[in-house]
């Protein structure tokens, strides 16, 4: 709303649609028409007559021109008061000042690095898990079958011998679950990393994230995968998480960062492509 609103000419009267009872008559007619189905045919006949009357009346109301009435504008004393400038000024939070917690990264890791890091980290994690299976149970298929039990009821009820044997369906399901989760966690990591203090990226990636993730899994695994929960070895689990975190963190941390729109001027963000608006190659405006 612009402040010069009051300078526009205010008319003495304003044209508004004229009141009419035809819409009500028409609605009542339709109601009676259908009500006849549950009462008497005579009710429907009256309804039909009212419907026709209402339709014709309404038609006349708007053809050839709509009926209007002139509503006198209220005297100035009864009109809305002009909107006043507020005496209170605006205090805006600035990034970096005390108690302001926002961190808007000027540069971020590309999403592709998150997916790539997640996939490679997932391979590292799988290697550690399979190593555990080989050392503890003499079978690399053991951890794979346990993971598949999240979606396969047959594997959830399997005994140790079955868990140690190769199962094609289990392998495919475990592969899909593992790949999907690795990609998603890698993507999440890539998004989060620029918002964390950059000097400790190795710490975030290789230690804190696996610990937090392990804690979350520890709390919920009983619900998600009771079979895995009953047989899991937590030391090896944390080790595999750390392997994932270190590899993923390394790949993401060493990816080439890209600028976010935060660094762009307002006009560029609005989509204007004009000379001088965007920073061009070489750093010149």
């Amino acid at each position: 709303m612009t402040s010069d609103q009051n300078e526009d000419h205010i008319p003495d009267a304003i044209e508004m649609p004229a009141p009419t009872y035809w819409p009500m008559i028409l609605a009542f007619g339709i109601t009676l028409l259908v009500a006849g189905l549950v009462t008497q045919v005579a009710v429907s006949v009256v309804g039909l007559l009212l419907l026709l009357l209402g339709a014709v009346g309404w038609f006349k109301e708007i053809f050839p021109m709509e009926k209007h009435e002139l509503v006198p504008v209220l005297p100035e004393s009864q009109r809305a008061q002009p909107i006043k400038v507020s005496s209170r000024s605006v205090a805006r939070l600035q990034a970096g000042v005390a108690s302001h917690r926002v961190r808007i990264p000027a540069q971020i890791h590309p999403y592709s690095s998150g997916i790539k890091g997640g996939l490679v980290g997932g391979i590292a994690m799988a290697l550690v898990a399979c190593l555990y299976g080989f050392i503890a149970h003499d079978s690399i298929w053991y951890p794979i079958n346990l993971l598949a039990a999240v979606a396969l009821p047959s594997m959830a009820m399997a005994d140790l011998t079955q868990l140690k044997a190769f199962d094609g369906t289990s392998f495919i399901i475990a592969l899909i679950c593992h790949a999907a989760f690795s990609c998603l966690v890698g993507l999440l990591f890539a998004i989060l990393l620029p918002m964390l203090p950059s000097r400790r990226a190795a710490f975030w990636g290789s230690f804190l994230s696996p610990i937090l993730w392990s804690a979350l899994v520890w709390a919920t695994l009983g619900l998600i995968n009771p079979t895995l929960n009953a047989r899991i070895n937590w030391i090896w689990f944390v080790a595999s998480q750390i392997a994932f975190g270190m590899v993923t963190g390394y790949i993401i941390h060493h990816s080439k960062m890209v600028e976010t729109m935060q660094t762009w001027p307002l006009a560029a963000r609005a989509g204007l492509e004009a000379r001088g608006v965007m920073y061009e190659k070489g750093g010149e405006k």
Partner: peptide, 12 residues
Amino acid sequence: MAVQEVALARAP
């Protein structure tokens, strides 16, 4: 040409 019908609303 049709003439638009505009009545002055009754004062409340």
